[in-house]
Computed example of a mutant assay.
Amino acid sequence: MTDRSLYIAMTGASATLRAQASVAHNLANTDTVGFQATLTGTVAAPVAGAGLPSRVATMQQTMGVSSAAGALTNTGNPLDIALQSEHWLAVQDRNGGVAYTRAGDLRINQNGLLTTASGLSVLDQSGAPMTVPPNDALHIGGDGTISIVPQGQPPSTMASAGRLQVVATNTRDLVRGEDGLMRTPPGSNPPPPAAGNVLTAGVLENSNVDGTAMLVSMIQLARQFETQVRVLHSADESARSANSLLSSR
């Protein structure tokens, strides 16, 4: 019985540490625009293998990403956008692939490329990095179309610079990568382009992390870890007492 309690407590403590790391990551992104909290928990997992039917491990498991909407902030910046629920902005990742984000704090770099705040190129409807010509005014419509007043032209002159690639898909159908971007699972079809009103300009969606709830969760996990460590010490003391009794005979 001692080895069973040691194994359960040991795997439980390890899973709790991983869960704490996930909660800490959420807390670190409380102020990150468009960030969606990672959902995590610990589950019981029977150990596979012949002769071990009574062994049960505790495992940390990522349950996905929270689809809750973050609070909206009016900025008045024409390059700031807030996407509708379950809508995603297509960007080019560091490896040249397609990924998705809800971070709407966009920029125009010195080469005229439209990028995210972290420098990722935003894709247009055709899947190419989007460029914005020099302009005196810019407006992003609700359907993602970017209109500009070309530089040196009168305000009444409006021209289309292209349309943002925004897709519609459930959060549970995407997978978050190590870089924080969302992607479709391997072998699945890309999500379809979204039609109609997909965003609001001049507004940013803040992180959906509930800081208070995360702090409470961190405290609960810390107490849980302490309990598991006490079980380890108790089992170790029991084993030492048993060995002492056996050696005294």
Results as ranks from 00 to 15, higher is better:
D3C: 00
S5D: 00
I8D: 00
A9V: 12
S14Y: 07
A21S: 13
H25V: 02
L27W: 10
A28F: 09
A28M: 13
N29P: 11
N29C: 12
D31E: 11
V33H: 01
G34Y: 00
F35E: 03
A37V: 05
T38M: 08
T40Q: 01
T42H: 01
P46H: 09
G49A: 09
A50K: 13
A50F: 14
P53F: 14
S54W: 00
T58D: 00
M59E: 15
Q60S: 10
M63C: 05
S66I: 03
A68M: 01
A68Y: 00
A69C: 03
L72P: 05
N77L: 14
P78R: 07
A82I: 09
A82G: 07
S85I: 11
H87D: 07
W88G: 08
L89F: 05
L89D: 05
A90L: 03
V91K: 13
R94K: 12
R94H: 09
G97V: 12
V98G: 01
T101D: 10
R102E: 10
A103M: 07
G104P: 11
D105Y: 00
L106N: 03
R107H: 12
R107D: 06
I108L: 02
Q110V: 02
Q110W: 02
T115C: 13
T116V: 05
A117E: 11
G119F: 13
L120W: 02
L120K: 03
L123R: 06
P129R: 07
T131G: 08
P133I: 01
P134M: 00
N135D: 03
D136A: 08
D143I: 04
T145N: 15
I146W: 04
I146R: 10
I146F: 09
S147G: 04
I148K: 04
V149E: 01
P150F: 07
P155V: 03
S156K: 02
T157A: 12
T157G: 00
M158L: 11
S160I: 04
A161V: 06
R163G: 05
Q165G: 00
V166Y: 08
V167D: 06
T169Y: 04
V175T: 15
G177H: 02
E178G: 01
L181C: 06
R183M: 10
P186E: 14
G187F: 11
P191D: 09
P191M: 07
A194F: 03
N197V: 06
N197Y: 08
V198N: 13
E205H: 04
S207V: 07
M214E: 15
S217Y: 00
M218C: 05
Q220V: 06
Q224D: 14
Q224V: 00
F225N: 12
F225E: 06
T227V: 06
V229N: 15
R230K: 13
L232N: 12
L232D: 12
H233R: 15
S234V: 06
S234L: 11
S234N: 14
A235N: 08
S238Q: 15
A239Y: 06
R240K: 15
R240H: 12
S244K: 11
S244E: 13
S247K: 15
R249S: 04
